[in-house]
Amino acid sequence: MASNSALETTIDKILNNTEKDIHSNIQSALSESQQKLEDSIPKLESEYDKIISDGKKEADKIEKQIIGSSDIEARNKQLMLLEEAVDKVFTKALDQIANADRSGDYSNLIKTMLEESTQILGTSEITVFTNAKDKDVVQSTLSQFSGAELSPDTIDCLGGIIVKSKDGAMTFDNTIDARIERLKPLIRKDIASKFGVGN
Protein backbone atom coordinates (compact mmCIF):
# COMPACT_ATOMS: atom_id res chain seq x y z
CA MET A 1 0.00 0.00 0.00
CA ALA A 2 2.78 2.33 1.07
CA SER A 3 4.51 1.91 -2.27
CA ASN A 4 1.21 2.66 -4.02
CA SER A 5 0.73 5.93 -2.16
CA ALA A 6 4.33 6.95 -2.93
CA LEU A 7 3.68 6.18 -6.59
CA GLU A 8 0.51 8.24 -6.52
CA THR A 9 2.32 11.13 -4.88
CA THR A 10 5.01 10.96 -7.55
CA ILE A 11 2.40 10.81 -10.29
CA ASP A 12 0.58 13.81 -8.74
CA LYS A 13 3.88 15.71 -8.58
CA ILE A 14 4.63 14.91 -12.17
CA LEU A 15 1.12 15.90 -13.19
CA ASN A 16 1.36 19.11 -11.20
CA ASN A 17 4.73 19.95 -12.70
CA THR A 18 3.51 19.14 -16.18
CA GLU A 19 0.39 21.22 -15.61
CA LYS A 20 2.54 24.12 -14.38
CA ASP A 21 4.84 23.73 -17.40
CA ILE A 22 1.90 23.64 -19.78
CA HIS A 23 0.35 26.65 -18.07
CA SER A 24 3.58 28.58 -18.22
CA ASN A 25 4.08 27.53 -21.87
CA ILE A 26 0.57 28.58 -22.72
CA GLN A 27 1.11 31.83 -20.87
CA SER A 28 4.36 32.58 -22.63
CA ALA A 29 2.90 31.55 -26.01
CA LEU A 30 -0.03 33.83 -25.34
CA SER A 31 2.13 36.77 -24.39
CA GLU A 32 4.47 36.02 -27.31
CA SER A 33 1.63 35.95 -29.78
CA GLN A 34 0.16 39.08 -28.23
CA GLN A 35 3.52 40.74 -28.60
CA LYS A 36 3.79 39.56 -32.21
CA LEU A 37 0.30 40.80 -32.89
CA GLU A 38 1.15 44.16 -31.39
CA ASP A 39 4.38 44.31 -33.36
CA SER A 40 2.62 43.47 -36.59
CA ILE A 41 0.04 46.23 -36.16
CA PRO A 42 2.27 49.04 -37.48
CA LYS A 43 3.39 46.76 -40.32
CA LEU A 44 -0.22 45.92 -41.09
CA GLU A 45 -1.15 49.55 -40.89
CA SER A 46 1.61 50.49 -43.30
CA GLU A 47 0.55 47.61 -45.60
CA TYR A 48 -3.01 48.88 -45.36
CA ASP A 49 -1.90 52.44 -46.14
CA LYS A 50 0.14 51.16 -49.09
CA ILE A 51 -2.81 49.20 -50.47
CA ILE A 52 -5.07 52.25 -50.07
CA SER A 53 -2.52 54.58 -51.65
CA ASP A 54 -1.84 52.13 -54.52
CA GLY A 55 -5.58 51.79 -55.03
CA LYS A 56 -5.97 55.56 -55.04
CA LYS A 57 -3.14 55.87 -57.55
CA GLU A 58 -4.76 53.24 -59.75
CA ALA A 59 -8.12 54.98 -59.47
CA ASP A 60 -6.54 58.32 -60.40
CA LYS A 61 -4.87 56.66 -63.36
CA ILE A 62 -8.13 55.14 -64.55
CA GLU A 63 -9.93 58.45 -64.03
CA LYS A 64 -7.29 60.25 -66.10
CA GLN A 65 -7.59 57.58 -68.81
CA ILE A 66 -11.37 57.86 -68.99
CA ILE A 67 -11.45 61.66 -68.92
CA GLY A 68 -8.54 61.91 -71.37
CA SER A 69 -9.99 59.56 -73.95
CA SER A 70 -13.50 61.01 -73.74
CA ASP A 71 -12.10 64.54 -74.09
CA ILE A 72 -10.18 63.47 -77.16
CA GLU A 73 -13.21 61.70 -78.61
CA ALA A 74 -15.43 64.73 -78.07
CA ARG A 75 -12.81 67.06 -79.54
CA ASN A 76 -12.38 64.82 -82.61
CA LYS A 77 -16.12 64.79 -83.22
CA GLN A 78 -16.18 68.58 -82.96
CA LEU A 79 -13.30 68.81 -85.45
CA MET A 80 -15.08 66.56 -87.95
CA LEU A 81 -18.28 68.57 -87.66
CA LEU A 82 -16.42 71.82 -88.09
CA GLU A 83 -14.60 70.49 -91.15
CA GLU A 84 -17.89 69.37 -92.63
CA ALA A 85 -19.32 72.87 -92.14
CA VAL A 86 -16.20 74.51 -93.59
CA ASP A 87 -16.37 72.19 -96.62
CA LYS A 88 -19.99 73.16 -97.19
CA VAL A 89 -19.08 76.84 -97.14
CA PHE A 90 -16.22 76.18 -99.56
CA THR A 91 -18.39 74.21 -101.98
CA LYS A 92 -21.00 76.94 -102.01
CA ALA A 93 -18.40 79.69 -102.47
CA LEU A 94 -16.68 77.81 -105.32
CA ASP A 95 -20.03 77.28 -106.96
CA GLN A 96 -20.76 80.99 -106.80
CA ILE A 97 -17.31 81.87 -108.19
CA ALA A 98 -17.73 79.44 -111.09
CA ASN A 99 -21.08 80.95 -112.03
CA ALA A 100 -20.10 84.56 -111.41
CA ASP A 101 -20.73 87.15 -114.08
CA ARG A 102 -17.62 87.66 -116.28
CA SER A 103 -18.46 91.26 -117.19
CA GLY A 104 -17.34 94.38 -115.33
CA ASP A 105 -14.38 94.02 -112.95
CA TYR A 106 -13.51 90.53 -114.10
CA SER A 107 -11.44 91.79 -117.05
CA ASN A 108 -9.48 93.98 -114.58
CA LEU A 109 -8.81 90.87 -112.49
CA ILE A 110 -7.49 89.03 -115.56
CA LYS A 111 -5.30 92.03 -116.42
CA THR A 112 -3.87 92.09 -112.88
CA MET A 113 -3.25 88.35 -113.09
CA LEU A 114 -1.42 88.71 -116.39
CA GLU A 115 0.72 91.58 -115.08
CA GLU A 116 1.58 89.59 -111.98
CA SER A 117 2.41 86.48 -114.02
CA THR A 118 4.70 88.23 -116.52
CA GLN A 119 6.47 89.97 -113.66
CA ILE A 120 7.06 86.71 -111.78
CA LEU A 121 8.21 84.82 -114.90
CA GLY A 122 10.37 87.78 -115.93
CA THR A 123 9.26 87.64 -119.56
CA SER A 124 6.34 88.76 -121.67
CA GLU A 125 7.02 86.03 -124.25
CA ILE A 126 4.29 83.86 -122.88
CA THR A 127 1.50 81.48 -123.77
CA VAL A 128 -1.67 81.90 -121.77
CA PHE A 129 -4.10 79.10 -120.95
CA THR A 130 -7.60 79.62 -119.63
CA ASN A 131 -10.98 77.90 -119.48
CA ALA A 132 -13.60 78.06 -122.23
CA LYS A 133 -15.74 80.53 -120.30
CA ASP A 134 -12.94 83.11 -119.82
CA LYS A 135 -11.44 82.80 -123.29
CA ASP A 136 -13.01 85.96 -124.68
CA VAL A 137 -12.13 88.11 -121.67
CA VAL A 138 -8.54 86.88 -121.71
CA GLN A 139 -8.22 87.34 -125.49
CA SER A 140 -9.39 90.94 -125.28
CA THR A 141 -7.01 91.72 -122.41
CA LEU A 142 -4.02 90.10 -124.14
CA SER A 143 -3.90 92.88 -126.73
CA GLN A 144 -2.25 95.01 -124.00
CA PHE A 145 0.62 92.48 -123.62
CA SER A 146 2.96 92.28 -126.59
CA GLY A 147 4.54 88.86 -127.04
CA ALA A 148 1.69 87.13 -125.25
CA GLU A 149 -0.59 84.71 -127.02
CA LEU A 150 -3.59 82.66 -126.04
CA SER A 151 -3.32 78.92 -126.39
CA PRO A 152 -6.09 77.26 -128.38
CA ASP A 153 -6.19 74.53 -125.71
CA THR A 154 -8.48 75.22 -122.78
CA ILE A 155 -7.92 74.15 -119.20
CA ASP A 156 -10.34 72.98 -116.55
CA CYS A 157 -10.51 75.61 -113.79
CA LEU A 158 -12.90 77.99 -112.06
CA GLY A 159 -11.32 81.00 -113.67
CA GLY A 160 -8.05 82.84 -114.10
CA ILE A 161 -5.04 81.84 -116.15
CA ILE A 162 -2.00 79.60 -116.39
CA VAL A 163 0.99 81.35 -117.95
CA LYS A 164 3.85 79.47 -119.59
CA SER A 165 7.07 80.91 -121.01
CA LYS A 166 7.24 80.25 -124.75
CA ASP A 167 10.24 77.90 -124.33
CA GLY A 168 8.08 75.86 -121.95
CA ALA A 169 10.65 75.99 -119.13
CA MET A 170 8.61 78.07 -116.67
CA THR A 171 4.95 77.93 -115.71
CA PHE A 172 3.00 80.13 -113.34
CA ASP A 173 -0.39 78.94 -112.19
CA ASN A 174 -2.54 82.00 -111.55
CA THR A 175 -5.93 80.34 -111.73
CA ILE A 176 -8.57 81.10 -109.12
CA ASP A 177 -8.30 77.44 -108.07
CA ALA A 178 -4.58 77.80 -107.35
CA ARG A 179 -5.12 81.06 -105.49
CA ILE A 180 -7.82 79.48 -103.33
CA GLU A 181 -5.56 76.50 -102.67
CA ARG A 182 -2.77 78.83 -101.54
CA LEU A 183 -5.05 80.81 -99.30
CA LYS A 184 -7.07 77.84 -98.08
CA PRO A 185 -5.52 77.66 -94.58
CA LEU A 186 -6.29 81.34 -93.99
CA ILE A 187 -9.81 81.07 -95.47
CA ARG A 188 -10.48 78.00 -93.28
CA LYS A 189 -9.43 79.98 -90.24
CA ASP A 190 -11.80 82.83 -91.19
CA ILE A 191 -14.69 80.44 -91.76
CA ALA A 192 -13.98 78.61 -88.50
CA SER A 193 -13.94 81.89 -86.60
CA LYS A 194 -17.44 82.60 -87.94
CA PHE A 195 -18.47 79.37 -86.22
CA GLY A 196 -16.83 80.64 -83.03
CA VAL A 197 -13.73 78.42 -83.25
CA GLY A 198 -10.24 79.82 -82.79
CA ASN A 199 -11.39 83.23 -81.56
Binding site: I120, L121, G168, A169, M170, T171, F172, D173, N174, A178, R179, R182, L183, L186
Partner: peptide
Amino acid sequence: TEGGVQYSKIAEIKGPLVVVDD
Protein backbone atom coordinates in the same frame (compact mmCIF):
# COMPACT_ATOMS: atom_id res chain seq x y z
CA THR B 1 0.18 83.85 -100.20
CA GLU B 2 2.00 84.46 -103.49
CA GLY B 3 2.23 81.58 -105.90
CA GLY B 4 5.48 80.17 -107.18
CA VAL B 5 6.98 79.52 -110.59
CA GLN B 6 7.10 75.96 -111.82
CA TYR B 7 10.25 74.88 -113.68
CA SER B 8 10.36 71.89 -115.97
CA LYS B 9 14.08 71.67 -116.74
CA ILE B 10 15.46 69.02 -114.44
CA ALA B 11 19.20 68.67 -115.02
CA GLU B 12 19.98 65.79 -112.68
CA ILE B 13 18.51 63.51 -110.03
CA LYS B 14 21.07 62.23 -107.54
CA GLY B 15 20.13 60.36 -104.38
CA PRO B 16 17.63 62.53 -102.51
CA LEU B 17 18.60 65.60 -104.57
CA VAL B 18 17.12 67.12 -107.72
CA VAL B 19 19.07 69.73 -109.68
CA VAL B 20 16.81 72.20 -111.48
CA ASP B 21 18.15 74.27 -114.39
CA ASP B 22 17.43 77.84 -115.51
